[in-house]
Nucleic acid binder design. Structure first.
Length: 277
DNA sequence: AACGATCCCTGTTGGC
DNA sequence: TGCCAACAGGGATCGT
């Protein structure tokens, strides 16, 4: 499922394809994809004719700067992906959004489960949106140890749940949160507020290296997931995963079978020997 | 305020 | 072999 590395890989493709281009025609065919705005028509009207000034990212949100004071904000959700295509290319099932650029290319948003969205906000609306409540980006602007310690002070919530809290630090999802905790040697049920300076340093270091490596690989494509890069290629990070989806398989470090538990209704994978509680 | 549960959605999978 | 329930989870929302 798309997390920070997959969104960053997507951002790079969209930046190349969209920067300096004009959205000459916009089609939006699914109301759920437009649900952050008032109506489907509002999204289409606001986007049509806009010049793309740049393509950014905050956590798992894509933030595309437009002229006239608008920002296109998109989230891939569980199953969303963008495609940079030619109008002649076959349109995949579940294509809910298509923007045709002034060079003829098409930016398409394909999202079977419709957890993702495409929105367009003015400045005031961005302030009111969930974007404004995001913590610092886990890769490009990670908190330092004192700042993270302050966020975690007194928190009893398991560290795994806290890594998924986008208000503390944004970009990690279930896969890379598990991978990060394994690399740092921290049990996912460890109370967040109980981590000392030394383990917080390990944790932040692990966040950086896990994300860096995944970005180099173009993200993770799971066998049962639709995530693909905008050029149609699959991410290549799957074979590197140490714990996610490896319940019962030997830990790559010590050989102990990987265990799976449920935390906050989500699977957590860990090595009981490398990550003692 | 902090924390936990539920809901949304559909392609894939596993059990019978 | 075929069918269907269970499963996957990011973020919004609500209850405790």
């Amino acid at each position: 499922m798309p997390e920070l590395p997959e969104v960053e890989a997507t951002r790079r493709h969209l930046e190349e394809a969209m920067t300096g281009r004009v959205l000459v025609e916009v089609e939006l065919s699914h109301p759920r994809t437009a649900r952050r705005n008032a109506t489907v028509d509002e999204v289409v009207t606001r986007l049509s004719g806009r010049l793309v000034k740049g393509v950014g990212r905050h956590g798992k949100f894509l933030v595309i700067d437009l002229d006239a004071g608008y920002r296109m904000v998109a989230h891939l959700g569980m199953s969303g992906r963008f495609s940079v295509a030619s109008p002649a290319d076959v349109v995949p099932a579940h294509t809910h959004f298509v923007a045709t650029l002034d060079d003829g290319a098409q930016i398409r948003f394909i999202d079977p489960r419709t957890f993702g969205f495409v929105a367009v906000f003015d400045e005031d609306e961005v302030e009111m949106s969930s974007l404004a409540r995001l913590g610092p980006d886990a890769w490009s602007d990670p908190p330092d140890v004192p700042r993270l310690a302050e966020s975690l002070e007194g928190r009893t919530v398991p560290i795994k749940a806290l890594l998924l809290d986008q208000g503390v630090m944004s970009g990690l999802g279930n896969i890379y949160a598990d991978e990060t905790l394994h690399l740092a040697g921290i049990h996912p049920l460890t109370p967040a507020g109980g981590l000392g300076t030394e383990r917080l340093e390990l944790l932040l270091s692990a966040v950086g290296s896990v994300l860096e490596e995944a970005i180099e690989d173009g993200g993770t494509t799971l066998s049962d997931m639709a995530y693909l890069l905008p050029d149609g290629r699959a991410g290549e990070s799957l074979d590197r995963l140490a714990v996610y989806g490896r319940e019962g398989s030997p830990c790559r470090r010590c050989g102990t079978p990987i265990e799976r538990i449920v935390i906050r209704q989500r699977s957590s994978h860990f090595c009981p020997r490398c990550q003692p509680l």
